[in-house]
Design a protein around this nucleic acid. Structure first.
Lengths: 347, 347
DNA sequence: ATGAAAGCGCTAACAA
DNA sequence: TTGTTAGCGCTTTCAT
């Protein structure tokens, strides 16, 4: 093989097989009915030259890259890998691949990836990041390339959204606790402004109201959606003498921080206080006690996002109406929740 | 803007600015000294048409994609995200992006990504996966595109490798434990055949021997590098009456499984038994007690891999000699290790 | 059933 | 300083 300059091209193959490049292209694409000898010759040449068609050239010609962009808030957040994997699985099955961008909580980076993916001419984008400014949402929604937003809800922008039903999810959490007899509870919120924060508290509160628990009985704390925030919030709660029998948290990481604070204070979970998280990350079942949580169906969401993109691609000129799909969250009971103690902590 | 067919091209811009495409190209690349009016006109046209150069076309022409492929064993393994993020950071800084592939423990998938990335004409590849067959390693090492292998050590193949110094790392772990007075210890190995498995046990054993601890005193257990394996191995150890004061584990996930088994058996950590892990994943500091571990410098490794690739690209015809770089691991003392109890567990 | 030729959008000689 | 032209590697009419 003449390794003179880079990988073999379709011309090299054509030459060696004694046919035209068009024929090579057809044979490889399985188009037409080539004579056995021709296709044989082509295949042999391909083999001999170790020819692999350039996806770059093909993309240019076909005006499609068979690639979807996927932007996540932060790949280091254990919530995302499962989503990424599922999206990749779904994409791979239909011959697409995923170009990943991790915004690392940085809005500039998010924009950077948006641009990058536009430049790369991805055939569609999945944006699973709330670090996106209003104007970028607008830009996305007006873009001709199909976009699916995951777990974020751009206000007043017509765009397809797939999101966990946070409100209903935290309602379930509250109902679970209330069913166990809890009435004095605390809720550790996420980072201010985070998309899911508001609906989650609201869902929780709504269930409380329905159960006749006065608004004032629910202690609301501010976390940061990280371990440290959960730990801090709960230790402050304890030192300020907050008297609750259950703590619900914005997410699992927060809840795991809460567990640690409780443990430091020698409070037993769930005997003294129950704790419930949200997301169902892997670590939720690793901690002691294993965390009861409201699971997000991450894999489903990743798969759905890709399917949606594919549908939009098909429909194209048909025009698919932007729609908000709420994926149910499911209660996962483990060890961190139990019946409410009757007295206060000290009793 | 005439939105007739897809995004604006360089020709659209040229036409609108009344110049040639070459001029547009130059102005945007900052080459030559265009007259102010020309460059002004070009820039204006670019703005007006919202022109973004096609990376696809540029790649075809330049014969480089400004992309590195990165294949990981399993993106859901908490070890990888930090590596990915670091690689992406480093790459982004020099105008490269990362095409990610998660093999999900599947050798076929790994090969799939290898092919995919070759087809995409990535400018370099980082392979952080041991799910790669001998023949693929060979193929990689002979490939004209620069390759860096992370945390895997293809046997008898001349290729650049960046790996944690597992042997030295686990030696450090053993020394830490021995320094605390432990002499009867168990070691939970990883999945059979996993690259790091062998060097880690060996390092651990070596330190034991140096300290005059008879080989027979070290109980060796087989885990699976997952939570379940650690839990199972340790509960079997306990039920078979294994009498140790410390347990070292192939990785943190295993160690966290071990913690759970110990807890279930009401054995206190570290009062009764010390536990040490390896990797330093986020969850290591979340569990109770927080896990003492041997940290891998994942971010460094990701960065180094990219730098290496860049160097190879520069050197090109110069030819860089494949080299194995061992990155030190660092002992991270937390709460799960302490002085050895004098008697046995029951004493 | 196959080939010739055009063109996807860009950059880089080479000319002017 | 700018334009003309060729060509990166592929697919796809349109002929034959």
């Amino acid at each position: 093989m003449s390794d003179r300059s880079g990988p073999a091209t379709i011309r090299d193959v054509a030459r060696r097989a004694g046919v035209s490049t068009a024929t090579v292209s057809r044979v490889l694409a399985g188009i037409g009915n080539p004579k056995v000898e021709t296709s044989g010759a082509v295949l042999a040449a391909v083999e001999a030259l170790d020819y692999r068609p350039s996806a770059v050239a093909r993309s240019l010609r076909m005006r499609r890259t068979n690639t979807f962009g996927l932007i996540v808030t932060d790949i280091q957040n254990p919530f995302f890998p499962e989503l990424v994997q599922a999206a990749d699985d779904a994409a791979r099955k239909v011959g697409y691949s995923i170009l990943l961008g991790s915004a690392a909580f940085d809005e500039h980076r998010a924009v950077h990836y948006l641009d990058l993916m536009a430049d790369r001419r991805v055939d569609g984008m999945i944006v699973a990041s709330s670090q996106v400014a209003e104007e970028s949402w607008r830009w996305l929604s007006e873009s001709p390339v199909p976009v699916v937003v995951v777990n974020a809800e751009p206000a007043n922008v017509p765009i397809t959204v797939i999101t966990s039903d946070n409100r209903a999810g935290l309602r379930t959490a509250a109902e679970h606790l209330i069913g166990l007899g809890h009435r004095r509870m605390a809720y550790v919120r996420g980072l201010e402004g985070i998309t899911a924060d508001q609906p989650r508290v609201e869902g929780f509160r709504a269930a409380c109201r329905d159960a006749g628990i006065p608004d004032a009985d629910l202690i609301e704390l501010r976390g940061d959606a990280q371990f440290a925030g959960g730990e801090r919030a709960v230790s402050e709660l304890l030192s300020s003498g907050g008297d609750v029998t259950a703590i619900a948290c914005h997410n699992d990481i927060t809840a795991i921080g809460a567990l640690r604070a409780l443990r430091a204070a020698r409070i037993r979970v769930p005997a003294d206080i129950s704790v419930v998280g949200c997301d169902d990350i892997a670590a939720a079942s690793w901690v002691v006690p294993a965390l009861t949580t409201i699971a997000q169906q991450k894999a489903d969401m990743g798969r759905m996002a890709v399917e949606r993109l594919l549908a939009m691609l098909d429909a194209r000129e048909g025009g698919i109406v932007p729609e908000t799909i709420r994926v149910p969250m499911v209660l996962q009971v483990r060890e961190s929740t139990g019946p409410a103690r009757l007295g206060g902590i000290g009793s």
